[in-house]
Amino acid sequence: MQKTRLPAVISTFIVCYAFWLLLTWSVQVQELAVGAVVSLAVALFSARFFIHEKAFWLFNPVKLVNALAFWLCIFPVEMVKANLDVAKRCFGGCKNVNPGIVKVPVDLKSDYGQAALANAITLTPGTITMEIAEEEGQTYYYIHWIDVTKPSGQEAGDAIKGRLEKGLRRVWE
């Protein structure tokens, strides 16, 4: 367990306070003051879980733009395509499935990047990340895939997460 560091607390505090402002949506002094106290308490307790690497990575404008581009452009396109595919299978009687668990290599290095990629894969209907494993310096995901068309390895990886990984690499590396 790592220690609580001041930059991590400040960073967490900013995120919590922004969240509070959005939820309450008022600028009365009381609300602002209570929000600050609560955010500070939460930040003190949770900073060490929330921030692991550089504390202010979230506030770097280039990365922020890349992150927005990923979550608002690249990811929704992939998600809609996969949604249409799975919806077609559902309405087509649910017999047209060929499930399996494949193992694909992943090149992202940072913890956040790997977690974000795993979440993006799980959010795409038709694929669920089941485990992240590391073997000899290379990270592997075990992914349950509803329609296995390619054997495990690089090809299956490209089919499942090729574009997602490219987009995320610009955010975290």
């Binding site: 799975v86 919806a87 649910c94 499930p99 669920i128």
Partner: peptide, 28 residues
């Protein structure tokens, strides 16, 4: 899409495929 996901949850052949269908409900 929620209807498609619900039909999948009821009709898919096994647990993991049912979970795949449920993702349809919670995304689109």
């Amino acid at each position: 899409f929620a209807l498609a996901g619900t039909k999948g949850i009821l009709k898919m052949p096994d647990t993991f495929c049912r979970m795949q269908a449920s993702t349809c409900v919670s995304t689109l």
